[in-house]
Design a protein around this nucleic acid. Structure first.
Lengths: 280, 280
DNA sequence: CTTCGTTAGTTTGTCTGATAAACATACCAG
DNA sequence: CTGGTATGTTTATCAGACAAACTAACGAAG
């Protein structure tokens, strides 16, 4: 009678199995899946339960369904993710420190590749310059945020490590709110930082570009203290030594105490942006 | 006439309206929504159609549903999205070289964080040692692959950068086939490399651990030449040192055209991705 | 009066079955 | 051979029902 007490969410289990099916069969976007009834019998559930799973997946574009044609594999629609995740008031389960550190790992790690490819492809330099030029002529916050995201996105793209693009897009969603707190007076500062990074990359000085980009990204962290309204005075005492930033609870994804995360963040996070990678 | 692409998706329309409802009512995580039947009558659709919309939203964690309790606004869970990041457009048509370079960026970039946390949490060292010990006693290929993946997964986990965890799992799927080509005679080599990495991390020498891990991962690269077959003679002659690799073309190339990128990746890379922590 | 166990009510979870719409394919006519 | 039509397939949506799980109120015991 009782089969699976493991997870009450039958729908999620089905979605997981469906994902596994696509991976195992090595299906690529456009490939057709079995029909709903076939999948339902295959998984041993009713068609409605399976349908709810496919609908969840189709919401993000992972699978597409058309009447008469059936189910096909698609790609995740990051715009949709941005649309629905961006408006949401609170996203916990990942602290801002972890977010920044993650971004540092990706973007800093990418720079040597960018420098190398820049030496071979002059267009990369042009594209980065073009974005920064547009940034200079920008007046609205909305446009500024879009262009700033585009700049960092172009950085990843230029590295040729396309899998990291997926992550960059996702992080962009979560970083958007940080960027939206940037005051107009700080714009020139960011543009100048971008320019220095471009120049360093153009000269092949990947290590210098890394230092510059680290400082640029970590400026988000300083802004964060202002946003959360925490004690920013302690943030001024830079490099005191406390270093347990970075990661706390990793996968605590329960939703029991939700609104406590807001207050919790301001209380616990008063450490430095700089992480283990302490140069100089 | 067709004004737009037919938005016959009733489900998306309902999801949109539900999102608007949350925004208008200024609901925050934990707040309760009307019941499914109420929302259904409110929107003028059947309960099942509305249910599909709520399920789509609950897939992202925007709303949560519990029997007897009703619908509540949930907290967005990043892990929920990263789990399905493998369906990102950028993840398609990725060459094995790019995959290895991507992995290098992530795993090398993570090591400084691991070293730091290892100094505070002795359990990390124990867990890594435990996996390696199990690796030594392994006899079957299946088990060896699982443990090898577990080791690298533990490295990411130990860094505390949980967003990267999903990515590691993702890459593990792709790398599984490479690892399965590992000959039994090469096992001790890999185990020894793991041990050296653990020791270096334990001593706080993140930079040394990075060099070791780079060599360890790039051994996959060598195996790759055997796997892809092709003209491995050219690959052998061009880069005997094998510590080079370099970013290749970004996308648009299928895995079939591997050889061109192999030759292109000349010995230009003498820099280290993720060298921010060169304290020497 | 407080506290704990029980019971009734509410709400989602899942199922069965059916009809309509949209698409794909095969068939037939010119 | 071509083009339109007829038919079949598959998803989209609906209706109603029962089970499971959680909430809350109520009553009994200390």
């Amino acid at each position: 009678m009782l089969k699976n007490i493991e997870r009450s969410n039958l729908r999620d289990v089905i979605a997981e199995r469906l994902k596994g099916y696509i991976v195992n069969e090595d299906l690529r976007p456009g490939d057709r899946l079995p029909t709903e009834t076939e999948l339902a019998t295959m998984f041993g559930v009713s068609r409605l339960s399976l349908r709810e799973a496919t609908k969840s997946l189709s919401f993000l574009g992972i699978v597409e369904a058309k009447p008469g044609r059936g189910l096909t594999v698609g790609s995740v629609d990051m715009d949709r993710v941005t649309e629905y995740l961006g408006f949401h008031p609170a996203m916990h389960s990942v602290t801002p420190e972890v977010l920044i550190q993650t971004r540092l790992v990706i973007e800093l790690g990418v720079l040597p590749h960018v420098a190398e490819r820049m030496a071979e492809d002059a267009e990369i330099h042009q594209r980065l310059e073009a974005i920064n030029d547009q940034l200079r002529r920008t007046r609205t916050l909305q446009r500024w945020v879009e262009l700033d995201i585009a700049f960092h996105r172009e950085l990843i793209l230029a590295s040729g490590l396309s899998p990291l693009m997926a992550f960059s897009d996702l992080l962009a969603v979560f970083f958007r709110r940080f960027r939206e707190s940037v005051k107009k007076a700080e714009w020139p500062e960011g543009i100048e930082a971008h320019q220095e990074i471009i120049d360093a990359l153009g000269d092949g000085h990947a290590d210098q570009a890394q230092r510059l980009l680290r400082a640029h990204i970590e400026s988000h962290w300083l802004r964060l203290d202002l946003v959360t309204g925490a004690d920013s005075n302690r943030a001024n005492t830079t490099q005191s030594g406390a270093t347990q930033s970075g990661a706390t609870q990793s996968s605590a994804t329960q939703s029991s105490a939700t609104q406590s995360s807001a207050t919790q963040s301001s209380a616990t996070q008063s450490k430095q942006p700089s992480s283990p990678n302490s140069e100089t």
